[in-house]
Simulated scan of single mutants.
Amino acid sequence: MAWDLLYGEYHGGDQVRSVKLQNLRREFEYARMRDDETLSGYLTRLNELINLMKTFGEVLSNARLVQKVLISLSKPYDPICLVIEDMKNIETVELQEILAILKSQE
Rank of each mutant, 00 (worst) to 15 (best):
G12T: 05
S74W: 02
F56I: 06
I80D: 03
L21R: 14
A63P: 02
I80H: 13
R25N: 05
Y30P: 01
A2W: 10
R17M: 13
E91D: 13
L82G: 14
E85C: 07
I101S: 01
Q96Y: 07
V93S: 13
A63D: 08
S18G: 15
L82S: 14
N47Q: 14
V69H: 04
E9I: 13
D86N: 08
V83M: 10
Q67L: 06
Y42L: 05
E9Q: 10
R45H: 12
G12Y: 06
G57W: 08
K68S: 00
Q15I: 13
A100L: 06
L52E: 07
T38H: 15
Y10A: 11
G57R: 06
I84T: 01
T92M: 03
D86P: 00
K88A: 02
M1C: 05
C81M: 10
K68C: 03
L95C: 12
G12F: 11
F28M: 10
Q15P: 05
N47M: 10
L24M: 10
K75D: 12
L5S: 11
E27A: 05
L99S: 03
E9Y: 12
P79S: 15
K103I: 05
Q22M: 03
H11L: 15
N23C: 03
G41F: 10
S40A: 15
M1Y: 07
C81S: 04
L21D: 08
I71A: 00
Q22S: 02
K88T: 01
P76K: 14
V16D: 15
D14C: 12
L82H: 06
E58D: 09
D4R: 13
N89L: 05
Y77E: 01
G13F: 05
T44E: 13
G12L: 04
Y10D: 05
N62F: 01
L102F: 10
T55I: 02
G8E: 11
S61P: 00
M53N: 11
M53V: 04
L99I: 12
L6N: 04
A63V: 04
I101F: 06
C81Y: 01
E85D: 07
C81D: 03
K20Y: 05
N23P: 00
D4S: 12
N89Q: 12
K20A: 12
D86F: 00
L102V: 09
T38Y: 13
P76D: 13
L82I: 12
A63L: 01
E91H: 03
T92E: 08
Y10V: 05
I50W: 00
D14K: 12
K20D: 09
A2V: 09
K103L: 12
G41V: 11
K88V: 00
D4K: 14
F28E: 03
V83C: 13
I80V: 15
I101P: 00
A31M: 15
I98Y: 10
E91M: 08
L24N: 04
M53S: 03
R32Y: 07
E27Y: 04
I71D: 01
V66G: 01
F28A: 11
A100C: 04
D14R: 15
L49S: 05
L60W: 00
L65S: 04
M33K: 10
V59Q: 13
A31C: 09
K54W: 02
L65H: 06
I90H: 01
E29I: 07
D4Y: 06
L52K: 12
E9T: 09
V93D: 10
Y77A: 09
D36W: 07
I80L: 14
A63C: 05
C81N: 06
E94Y: 07
